[in-house]
Design a protein around this nucleic acid. Sequence first.
DNA 1: TCGACTCATCAAGATTCATTGATGGAAAGA
DNA 2: TCTTTCCATCAATGAATCTTGATGAGTCGA
Lengths: 117, 117
Amino acid sequence: MTSATSKAVFPLHDDFVPRVARWFHALSDETRLRIVDRLSDGEKCVCDLTDLLDAAQSRLSFHLKTLKDAGILKDRRDGRWVYYYLNPAVVEDLTQFVCSLTACCQKLNKEVSSCCE
Amino acid sequence: MTSATSKAVFPLHDDFVPRVARWFHALSDETRLRIVDRLSDGEKCVCDLTDLLDAAQSRLSFHLKTLKDAGILKDRRDGRWVYYYLNPAVVEDLTQFVCSLTACCQKLNKEVSSCCE
DNA sequence: TCGACTCATCAAGATTCATTGATGGAAAGA
DNA sequence: TCTTTCCATCAATGAATCTTGATGAGTCGA
């Protein structure tokens, strides 16, 4: 038994659907995926990301806010700089959702196996 | 070692980003999430879904096409009916992506553990 | 205090997306 | 053949989203 199957995800609870939709929407944009990609090896400030992604500051600020509002990212201020980083709790919630869906697929295929194995 | 960590997902390959963005976009809409939810226990035809979700047929057709174009769903015709069902291959690719992201989070937190455990 | 730097926010414009109702094709029974 | 059922597609409308450039708040060093 893995954590991914420890809660009943499907069928979805009505209250859960909007939250999940926001996670997926936050990750549905290429710029935001590239932000997440850059943060996958550690936190970055906005000016780091403008350099790494060659994108305007206001544009990144918009996307960072979108990711933060969805819970995917968190931020912390250090002097002039604001550092953004992945929010492990929400990333794990998202992972559990997707792993549960995989488990459903496997069950439908009459395979007896658990997530990520 | 799990399958989720068997390939290097991060940093993302440029060619991979648009494909991933389409997965997430397909799942970023509440109606489409509810469709996936209903299909999590097996294939359904469009008229089943119009009843289950109380949605107009053209509306569902639009969303089913979006999910199918992203690879999340596949369909098969049986007489008059078209049955839609989850595409296990893409669901597993998506699972690997988010499991890899979780693994990155865990590594950043100096924890030595693998996906979904 | 002044200027430089980092970043969030705003308004405007363009693009994309979701919904609706109408139309037509394909399949199957009468 | 005619009709019904199931479904995809289209056009039109409105809503949501993304980008850009400008503005301003907060921080820090000179």
